[in-house]
């Protein structure tokens, strides 16, 4: 029986990490902040994959490893599996989660005043949300690279709790 972690603690930690990196450490360099957050996720994914693959035979090909991420790895992290997996069979995989746990409590900030202000609140909100997605992207990339699959991972938000991760395997 593994040890349990309070879900709200993890949520708060993630929120706090993102806000520290974006607002105090690298306040004016969102790219650098994103890269740092992604790197933390990479290390976490790297270590988690070592633990979660302990009792299973080695993977024969990339698809098996991706399936492992979608099923077992995702269940360990979020108590659910990826809802939809698409691939073009040429090294690109789209992992769609219809209710991504780390986004379920995300709310769009109420718009302060006029909607046609210079910086659109809509884009600002989506920027803030995408900041929170660098961490899970890093986790996926870390896990896959530890399994011997170098790749690039990006995230797409369609409508809020749903989100999809695009994995591009480097050849």
């Amino acid at each position: 029986m593994g040890r349990e972690v309070s879900e709200s603690c993890v949520d708060s930690l993630l929120t706090e990490m993102v806000s520290s990196y974006c607002n105090s450490f690298y306040a004016n360099k969102p790219d650098l902040a994103a890269r740092r957050i992604e790197a933390i996720g990479y290390q976490v994914g790297h270590q988690l994959s070592e633990r979660y693959t302990m009792d299973r035979p080695r993977f024969g090909d990339h698809l098996e490893a991706i399936k492992f991420i979608c099923k077992d790895f995702w269940s360990e992290l979020f108590k659910k599996q990826i809802d939809n997996l698409k691939t073009n069979h040429r090294g690109t995989f789209v992992l769609q989660d219809n209710r991504f746990r780390w986004l379920t409590r995300m709310s769009v900030e109420p718009t302060p005043e006029s909607p046609d202000a210079s910086d659109d609140p809509e884009s600002k909100a989506s920027q803030a949300t995408s900041m929170h997605l660098y961490f899970p992207c890093g986790i996926i990339r870390g896990a896959l690279s530890n399994l011997g699959i170098p790749c690039a991972v990006s995230a797409d938000i369609s409508n809020l709790p749903a989100c999809s991760f695009v994995v591009r395997i480097k050849v």
Binding site: S49, E50, T53, M54, R58, F59, G148
Partner: peptide
């Protein structure tokens, strides 16, 4: 002659 060598390979190579 004197030894036996065993191996184990993890998923992470």
């Amino acid at each position: 002659e004197n030894f036996k060598v065993y191996g184990y390979l993890t998923n992470t190579k």
